[in-house]
Design a protein around this nucleic acid. Structure first.
Lengths: 206, 206
DNA sequence: GCTTGTTCTGAACCGTGGTTCAATCCTTGG
DNA sequence: CCAAGGATTGAACCACGGTTCAGAACAAGC
């Protein structure tokens, strides 16, 4: 029974669809994609395994949708925070690093799921888009900064990748599910450390 | 039939063990850990599936051993290249980045397997050690450089992680199996770009 | 209430690849 | 040449979770 659009026949079809997505998202936020089995998702909605397949083609597509919505939510927040309203590019990069890291350290399980957890190729596809989005945001800011002579001349694309890599790697130790929640003091130390590292790397004029 | 030490009973037992490891390593180097199925490994040695289990407890342990030996080989090369013999710490970090990146761009499939390919938890354990080794090498050099006043004061551990992250992320696009082999010119551009990025980040006095 | 169409249910199915083990082959010592 | 024990073989087994689908439950129209 391939997935058909049922919104026209049942007025609460899309509502149930949403509810399944929310259930899956909850499971992912609590224990990662691995925990979001079809059975667990269905159970959370007091629905049956089979009914999930009336709303989604496959578990992979369902999870891809969960990934997309969670990722978009994150990206919107970051994009909002670094929107160009005339400040220094370095401040905008600083905000990018700060918001990204801060949210990751707050919602560690979800951050880990979005950034690092092994997932199926279909979901990995979404992750690629997600990472690229961040890199593009960074790249644009760096390009702006280069235009204003705020940064040392360099390849903006490479620099943006390297910044994202530096941030991710510096965070991964703190985000990994088996590691303990860092204290607020540790959190701000890490974030400040990364910010400064990135500022120096970009050659921010002081 | 759990794995027993057979070296005492068959003088070519350890030889066959080696041969299985070499076969597995070849498969990993060609197509990643995923391609190293027990059947494929056995076939490469004209051995049977079952006999693999006379030499190894499980596929996971076999692959963990493959990972360890390949990783140690890489690390030895890097360690050799950055051994302290009185140069500037910045040159040593430069070499670390150069050798690491150069080798990754050369043996892309193996680099991808060691750095990024999803693997079982048992093998992931080895990867953790592997990454930590690189970070520790970097950390030590940075610490030396800080002692000599070559770098701007900073947390050596964080800086080393960030450097490794920056390098990995800048490389991943070029290493990913589905991406095409970069030309020599592109390779040296990337490597030089990352080197400079890291130099700036560390605040190398110029 | 009956008919017809729609949704829901969950036990059975399936694909994959690691693992086992009884049968067989080989080697060694006498 | 013949045991006896270790090594080898590979088909059968198993675990796992996603997927299916025949039947049950339900809703709508008459």
């Amino acid at each position: 029974m391939p997935y058909r659009q049922t919104a026209l026949t049942r007025k609460n079809a899309s509502e149930k669809r949403e509810s399944l997505l929310r259930a899956a998202r909850g499971l992912v936020a609590a224990d990662g994609f691995k925990a979001a089995t079809v059975a667990a998702i269905a159970a959370r909605c007091s629905a049956s395994v089979g009914s999930v397949y009336s709303y989604f083609d496959s578990r992979d597509r369902l999870l891809a949708e969960v990934f997309r919505s969670a990722a978009n939510h994150e990206i919107d927040i970051v994009r909002e925070a670094v929107a160009d309203s005339g400040q220094q590019a370095s401040d905008r990069i600083g905000e990018l690093v700060r918001i990204f890291s801060g949210r990751a350290l707050q919602g560690r399980r979800m951050a880990w799921a979005l950034l690092f957890e092994p997932v199926s190729p279909v979901v990995e596809e979404e992750r690629l888009v997600y990472r690229r989005s961040y890199t593009e945001i960074g790249e644009q800011i760096i390009r702006d900064g280069l235009g204003r002579g705020e940064f040392v001349p360099q390849d903006a694309r490479l620099a943006a990748s390297a910044v994202m890599g530096a941030v991710s790697e510096a965070l991964v130790g703190w985000i990994r599910p088996e590691s303990p929640q860092p204290s607020p003091a540790e959190q701000s130390d890490v974030i400040d450390g990364i910010r400064l590292f990135c500022f120096r790397a970009l050659g921010v004029a002081r």
